[in-house]
Design a protein around this nucleic acid. Structure first.
Length: 279
DNA sequence: CATTTCACCTGGTGGC
DNA sequence: TGCCACCAGGTGAAAT
């Protein structure tokens, strides 16, 4: 489900609910898949630690952990939601959904007990623990789309022969853009997804830069896109799917010119565009 | 190195 | 209703 706006929404929701809480008990499922860090080491790293803050980097949720409420950050719990992952704050007695892979029971002074749960049917998500006394802090490989300057954005595509859509999806160039926001930003910039990245004109790159930042910011304001089952940390759906101009609108009229939206495959992904508005 | 393809999973949908 | 092929918000390894 999750691209930058959805991950941002989940991370800020989790932050609001659990910052300052201590992990008093950890339960982890038995599947190998979601655990980039072996379950035993992950559980040991989480147990007893305090959530200092939670934020987003690219499509990753980074939880800063300390030994005590006022202590220095000594570890990071990094959550990647994959395609179907959810990070939910619940009460401890809430029914446990199928495909729940991690449950963290949390406690803090006055607040009622709650649980932080990681649920992921397809198991494409990843859980990782970094011990900052031994390992470097997490950094995303690509640049941050929301804040990258136009000059640096344009430089990412210089000399590249791949399709602009494929370039937007490449996380080592930009961290956080996925299939929905690649299609939506290309529509808003009036650029066909198969255009060679290195051949875009200066004005097109400027339009794409502006469109991408606008669409991401707008989507964050609306709590992300709930295409099938995406919900935030509180189980609430987003509303940006109502603003989609092309994504999953194959055969429907373009909101600008009425031409029917087409769907093709680019970079192995379903790709939607308006043949009239995008050149 | 740059780029493309495919496997990894489960569940929902639409056609027959 | 039932079965089945196909598709899905992501990524990283393998192939080209």
């Amino acid at each position: 489900m999750p691209e930058l706006p959805e991950v941002e929404t989940v991370a800020s929701g989790v932050h609001e609910r659990v910052a300052g809480d201590r992990v008093v008990e950890v339960w982890l499922g038995s599947y190998r898949e979601p655990f980039k860090t072996p379950p035993q080491r992950l559980a040991r790293g989480l147990e007893g630690r305090v959530f200092r803050s939670i934020h987003r980097t690219g499509k990753h949720i980074v939880c800063e952990l300390a030994e005590s409420a006022g202590g220095d950050v000594s570890a990071q719990w990094i959550v990647h939601l994959g395609m179907t992952g959810r990070l939910l704050v619940t009460t401890p007695d809430a029914p446990v959904e199928p495909h729940t892979h991690a449950r963290l029971r949390l406690k803090s002074g006055q607040k009622a007990e709650r649980e932080l749960r990681f649920v992921d049917p397809r198991r494409f998500g990843r859980l990782e623990l970094r011990d900052l006394r031994r390992e470097a802090a997490f950094t995303a490989p690509g640049v941050e789309p929301l804040t990258v300057a136009l000059e640096d954005f344009a430089a990412l595509f210089h000399g590249r022969k791949l399709a602009i859509k494929a370039a937007l999806l490449n996380q080592s160039l930009l961290s956080g853009v996925g299939n929905i926001y690649a299609d939506e930003s290309l529509f808003r910039a009036g650029i066909r997804p198969r255009r060679q990245a290195g051949r875009l004109r200066r004005d097109e790159l400027a339009r794409l830069h502006a469109a991408l930042q606008q669409v991401l910011r707008h989507a964050i304001e609306l709590g992300g896109s709930s295409v099938s089952d995406y919900v935030d940390a509180n189980g609430v759906r987003g509303f940006f799917q109502l603003e989609h101009c092309v994504y999953q609108r194959k055969g429907e009229p373009c909101r600008t010119c009425g031409t029917l939206i087409r769907k093709i495959i680019v970079a192995g992904r379903g790709t939607h565009y308006c043949p009239h508005c995008q050149r």
